[in-house]
């Protein structure tokens, strides 16, 4: 929690509020309204990017809860996301309604995530990262070979979701659905961080021995971090399945795990806002490169192919540059920019 200049708290409850000032509440309200109206002025392509951003926000914020707040590095988040997607696709194919499938997919993923979180009892740091890497590869194998449930390499088709007979069958309708779920997920994480649970996570991250000394049951809380984080990832995965309407194992490879980690690194570890920024940035980056390749192709015929090949390289380069020059991420930069304009003509 960063105390801000000019804000005085007289109660602890006041300090723990999500919107500490009325200005923030009003500006968030305006931003929300603008977001809701945005699809009216956009074509389908832009709306579909917004949907992807909403889903990525869920994944990034949930990983940030585990890695940024609780300090448990997970290289298996992409696979957990995939578990949610497959669970949703399977349950939906059994005929369950969407409103039941979404939390059920989350619960299945939470169970899987907590199972693979068990090694965190004994492992930390790099050893845990490698254990979760193993989880990623083992789960990928299960997606590919458990034909009866996952459809194997040919994948699974998913019907668009229906709520009380209303079908979300277009990008615009899916945008409102994903936006609503993403907002709920972000609020869940914000609220978890204001409770004893969230403070315990931060204590574990900062120093596990002192956390245990002040009465945090390390194993129980680490498992809860894995559970909550995977639950949200599962919900995100379920939305992904409903949105893309066709899922295959390669969508949930190690690349997805890496891109979620990149989102929270670029956005800012240990900040809910950072997760959101990172998700927006990493989702827009390849689309921006596409745009660039498309327009540069008009002048240099060769460059568009090369630029597409460089997509992964640019991703890696951005990641490396952020880590070297902006290790605190976009959330910190945002804070600095706000601080600058607060005192604008008098910078010092």
């Amino acid at each position: 929690m960063h105390g801000q200049c000019g804000l005085f708290f007289r109660t602890y409850a006041g300090e723990a509020r999500i919107f500490p000032s009325r200005f923030l509440m009003v500006s968030m309200g305006l931003f929300g309204t603008a977001l809701c109206l945005a699809p009216l002025a956009m074509n389908n392509y832009l709306v579909s990017i917004l949907c992807l951003i909403n889903i990525a926000v869920i994944g990034a914020v949930s990983l940030n809860l585990l890695t940024g707040f609780c300090g448990q590095i997970s290289l298996g988040h992409g696979a957990f996301f995939g578990v949610g997607a497959y669970a949703a696709a399977y349950l939906a194919s059994l005929g369950l309604p969407f409103l039941a499938v979404l939390p059920a997919a989350g619960l299945v993923t939470a169970a899987v995530g907590m199972f693979f979180g068990l090694p965190s009892l004994r492992l930390k740091g790099i050893y845990l990262a490698i254990a979760t890497l193993a989880a990623q590869l083992i789960l990928e194998y299960v997606f590919l070979h458990w034909d009866a449930v996952t459809g194997g390499s040919s994948g699974m088709a998913v019907d668009p979701p229906q709520v009380f007979g209303f079908a979300f069958d277009s990008d615009v309708k899916m945008f409102y659905l994903t936006l609503a779920v993403a907002c709920v997920c972000v609020l869940i994480v914000c609220n978890v961080m204001r409770t004893r649970l969230g403070r315990a996570f931060v204590a574990i991250r900062d120093h596990h021995l002192s956390a245990e000394i002040v009465g945090v049951d390390l194993f129980a809380y680490k498992l809860r971090a894995f559970g909550i984080s995977s639950f949200l990832a599962g919900v995100g995965g379920a939305l992904w399945a409903f949105y893309t309407m066709y899922i295959t194992p390669e969508q949930f490879g190690i690349g997805l795990s890496v891109s979620y980690l990149a989102m929270i690194i670029i956005g800012g570890l240990g900040s809910v806002l950072g997760g959101v920024f990172g998700a927006v940035f990493i989702t827009i980056l390849p689309e921006f490169l596409n745009f660039l390749a498309h327009h540069a192709g008009a002048f240099f015929t060769d460059i568009s192919g090369a630029l597409l090949a460089m997509k992964e390289g640019v991703f890696g380069l951005v990641l490396v540059l952020f880590l070297i020059f902006e290790p605190e991420g976009l959330a910190n930069r945002w804070r600095l920019v706000k601080a600058y304009w607060k005192l604008y003509p008098f910078a010092h």
């Binding site: 990262a129 090949a309 991703f315 890696g316 951005v318 490396v320 880590l323 290790p327």
Partner: peptide
Amino acid sequence: ILRPMIGEPIISVVMVTIGLSSVLKSLVQL
């Protein structure tokens, strides 16, 4: 790449080598 990362937390060092791996891979593809 690695020298600026001395003293940074484990996750940053892990991620910097992952970033490096994607850069190398795309250079080879290019």
